[in-house]
């Protein structure tokens, strides 16, 4: 089952001579339950692609379908609502709200919806992530690895169609990096969670099911490693 379809996506910055083509006519499709790594040198456009898939940026051209919804057909506020329900984002620098505690940060997408948090679901996620005893801590009281776990928890809480991770281990030591990747792999297996991860670390990319290489805003290689 196809969960993501990208059609002729382009993103240009600036105009005329100084125009930068960050992304040029990219198309791809991702099935439910896939674990995709996007790899490429810095400035290749991989982050831009991820932001466009996540609906946090606006493309110059092209379409992005998540669960058969063209997210750029939605107006700004419906897209925000779609994003909090269907897309989980994990960033290199965690992007946690510093004045909210761990529990509030994780449940933020649900709370923004004005819905009740399902306690079982929250318990299961924090147990899996190993941060159950840190629920009332503020982000700055946690280590980098722990903060990244919180942000993964936030990304997973709404059972999103897609989990997008932008260099999730870029700011972590090797031991923590390994643990974070293992957590992502586990959620991929356990919840059939579709994951797209951006990395420039080949050893991380090789743990995915599929690796897409990007250079100068174009897909240059797309190979399936394992089914």
């Amino acid at each position: 089952m196809e969960i993501l379809r990208v059609e002729n996506l382009s993103k240009h910055y600036g105009k005329g001579n100084t125009q930068v083509k960050a992304l040029e006519d990219v198309s791809l499709s991702v099935k439910k339950g896939e674990f995709v790594a996007i790899i490429g040198p810095s400035g290749s456009g991989k982050s831009t692609l991820l932001h466009l898939i996540g609906g946090v940026d606006i493309p110059t051209e092209g379409k992005v379908y998540i669960d058969d919804t063209n997210i750029y057909n939605l107006n700004e506020s419906s897209r925000a609502v779609f994003r909090r329900r269907q897309v989980g984002l994990v960033y290199q620098f965690y992007n946690l709200i510093p004045i909210l505690n761990v529990k509030e940060n994780i449940t933020l997408p649900i709370l923004l919806d004005g819905k009740k948090v399902q306690k079982d679901k929250l318990k299961e996620i924090v147990n899996t992530l190993g941060i159950a005893d840190r629920m009332n801590y503020l982000p700055n009281q946690l280590s980098g690895g722990q903060q990244q776990r919180v942000s993964i928890g936030r990304a997973l809480i709404n059972n999103p169609a897609l989990l997008l991770a932008d260099e999730p281990t870029g700011n972590l030591d090797s031991k923590n990096s390994e643990e974070i990747i293992n957590l992502l792999k586990m959620s991929n297996r356990k919840y059939k969670q579709t994951i797209i991860i951006i990395t420039h670390d080949e050893s991380i990319a090789l743990q995915a099911n599929r690796v897409i290489s990007i250079e100068d805003g174009k897909i240059v290689k797309d190979e399936v490693l394992r089914k």
């Binding site: 996540g54 946090v56 700004e76 506020s77 925000a80 609502v81 779609f82 994003r83 909090r84 329900r85 897309v87 984002l89 960033y91 992007n95 946690l96 709200i97 510093p98 004045i99 933020l108 997408p109 923004l112 919806d113 936030r154």
Partner: peptide, 15 residues
Amino acid sequence: KQFGMLRSVGATAKQ
């Protein structure tokens, strides 16, 4: 930055 983060986890402009 915090507002941007809230936006990225799906807070609407209205919120």
